[in-house]
Nucleic acid binder design. Structure first.
Lengths: 157, 157
DNA sequence: GATCCCCTGGTCAATCTGACCACCCGGACG
DNA sequence: CGTCCGGGTGGTCAGATTGACCAGGGGATC
């Protein structure tokens, strides 16, 4: 979808200060409130903005350990493995990929020791041939979207 | 932090229906509005809920291709590599990890062809010895937090 | 038994929302 | 050249929500 500079500024503004309402946003952006409302509606129906769900920190919840596991799947077991993995709460996301592994998943655990339990849970399923796990030490760039927004806004404009 | 069942239900409710306000949430949960307000305040100051930023879909922005790159870094170049990667908008997150690679990053691109440009951008920096990229085909489990919340709420309770 | 913390149920003024409206502008088009 | 149309502007409106209070009730703890 076309994201112009105003859309970009609006999203960035919302990302930086989620609490501000439509009215305040319109003041900051120097446009009429109706404009901001219309843009927001459009961005949401476009699917550019999926929603404003709470941003939960697993670490604060007691799951400070993050790891990525690359899984190799037995031919034809894909569907079952997905179902299995999606039933494990500690699996935060799962992707099927090209390359060495067949799937990549993000895990969290209460501790390094607890990670063993989680990995056992994940692997305790027929259909997974091999797994290799990388524990996250630092997170120099936390999941972000602002720079991409800004680039998209520039590109379109 | 301690997350009891009420906190859990509150977060899940907010995650499912971000639009509802404190008042409606209190009705749904069957507690007083002040209680919900107090819980929310606590969760936010605890850092359990980081905020309510817009949930932006890179695909809808024109970046439908996602990939994960495992990077191997030349000894002592870590800091510079991080700075370099954080300057690339298409790098959505970056982790330092144990295991085969030294870093893992999530990339997006406008197309498979464009991914080449992004990878060249990422690798166009002295200090990265080797990189292996896995393109995401499907995303059977999109980044989620609800199941973990529910488990954490039960564990504490 | 006394104390403390949390939740309850109520009120209040201030604010924001979502919905309208008439009007104006620039670009596209016949 | 004139017209149409989408988008932005500035304004109003009633209704809903927020954030701030308060006194009181329980339950848990010591």
């Amino acid at each position: 979808m076309a994201i112009d500079r105003l859309d970009g500024r609006l999203i960035v503004l919302l990302a930086r200060e989620p609490r501000i309402g439509v009215l305040e946003a319109s003041r900051r952006l120097g446009v009429a409130r109706g404009t901001v409302q219309a843009r927001l509606d459009r961005l949401q129906s476009n699917g550019v903005i999926r929603g404003f769900g709470p941003d939960v920190d697993p670490a604060a919840l007691g799951y400070p350990v993050t790891a990525f596991a690359t899984l190799e799947i037995k031919q034809g077991q894909g569907v079952d493995v997905r179902a299995h993995l999606s039933s494990v709460p500690e699996v935060l996301e799962l992707h099927t990929t090209t390359g060495h592994g067949d799937m990549l998943c993000r895990l969290v655990a209460r501790s390094n020791a607890d990670l063993q339990r989680v990995i056992d849970l994940v692997l305790g399923f027929d259909g997974i041939v091999r797994a290799s796990t990388a524990i996250v030490m630092e997170n120099p760039v936390p999941l972000r979207i602002i720079p991409l927004i800004e680039q998209a806004a520039e590109d379109t404009a």
